[in-house]
């Protein structure tokens, strides 16, 4: 049994955990690249990353400076918008704090410690960060990545495989799929800011595994197939959807409300597993657009399945009261 509100918190804790992990990884990949590039070029590429992470509006609103590490700061330590690593870590911590009584103590403690570390890095001023050549941001990125790894380690090793786990894992894998599709989009086109295949694989933590199969200079098409359709790679969208489907099946026996997202997850998984991906990727924008919106709808459906029914009419509609007629089920 799980409270609807707790299910919701765990779903979002999972999503934010994945988000913090992914942004930190992308920033770490980009920071390495920045050091070896011309300032303008580096800046363009960083802007492209901001776009891929869906933070265009926040970026404009934040009036980010022009220094080479300003974009990194925006992505790592700026808590004025919800898309930075520091904000995502805070959201993980707040959501886990709500369910602190039902998750392993270590999971809460890891999240709390990571939050404390990230907050102290944040308090170093932007000017100081710029002076040290992004040193502080780099250290926070390392801290964040390590923290995310231990969080997922504790989650995997000590959380009971109950409804709470199902929601948290579904949240993580949905967020991962959504970000993977968005990052793939940033490898399309011809401009100098387009990310090459290796960069896309590094962003998605798949470089090493893909190198063995695709060699050293994979083309976008091959990378896209790898990241969308690979059956063994826990970073591929197909793999993620398969797991989401399993988690929703775990829940479906008790919670009727997950029937809709479960169907949708199955349909989308089948699309990737049995669809003619080569043909579909002939028009990559259209295919990625479709996948992006289908995943967003799926995530919205899973979220909707956790929302408690609030009106009395709905409350009455959802349970039949057996028993002795005086109101108390026997």
């Amino acid at each position: 049994m799980i409270l609807a509100r707790h299910a919701d918190s765990l779903l979002w804790a999972g999503r934010y955990l994945e988000r913090a992990d992914t942004i930190a990884r992308c920033v770490s990949v980009e920071t390495n690249a920045v050091m070896h590039r011309q300032a303008t070029e580096a800046r363009l590429a960083s802007r492209r990353l901001v776009q891929a992470l869906g933070l265009q509006d926040e970026f404009v609103a934040a009036q980010v400076g022009t220094g080479p590490y300003a974009v990194m700061d925006f992505l790592v330590s700026d808590d004025s918008h919800p898309g930075s690593v520091v904000s995502a870590v805070q959201a993980v911590r707040e959501n886990l704090r709500i369910v602190r009584d039902r998750i392993p103590v270590e999971l809460w403690e890891e999240a709390n410690s990571l939050h404390i570390l990230m907050q102290s890095a944040k308090s170093v001023g932007a000017a100081a960060r710029e002076q040290t050549g992004g040193e502080v941001s780099r250290m926070s990125v390392i801290t964040a990545r390590r923290g995310c790894r231990s969080l997922s380690g504790v989650m995997t090793e000590s959380m009971s495989r109950d409804e709470g786990y199902a929601f948290m894992e579904a949240g993580r894998l949905l967020e991962r799929s959504i970000l993977t599709v968005e990052l793939l989009k940033s490898g399309l086109g011809t401009g100098s800011d387009v990310f090459d295949g290796n960069r896309l694989l590094a962003f998605t933590h798949s470089l090493q595994a893909a190198r063995r199969e695709l060699g050293h200079s994979p083309q976008w098409h091959a990378v896209a197939k790898f990241l969308l359709q690979h059956e063994q790679m826990p970073r591929s969208v197909l793999w993620c959807l398969g797991r989401v489907e399993l988690r929703l099946e775990d829940l479906a026996a008790a919670a009727g409300a997950v029937a809709t997202p479960r169907r949708r997850a199955g349909a989308l998984r089948a699309h990737l597993e049995y669809g003619e991906l080569d043909a579909l990727l002939a028009e990559p924008e259209a295919e990625l657009g479709y996948l992006g919106s289908a995943l967003a709808e799926l995530a919205a459906d899973v979220h909707a399945s956790t929302v408690a029914r609030s009106s009395f009419a709905e409350v009455h509609a959802q349970f039949v009261r057996p028993g002795d007629g005086n109101g108390r089920p026997q």
Binding site: A7, E163, Q318
Partner: peptide
């Protein structure tokens, strides 16, 4: 509801 307190869970009211 009808003098019984229920918990809102994802499975319905308990």
């Amino acid at each position: 509801d009808e003098h019984v307190v229920y918990l809102r869970t994802i499975e319905g009211l308990v």
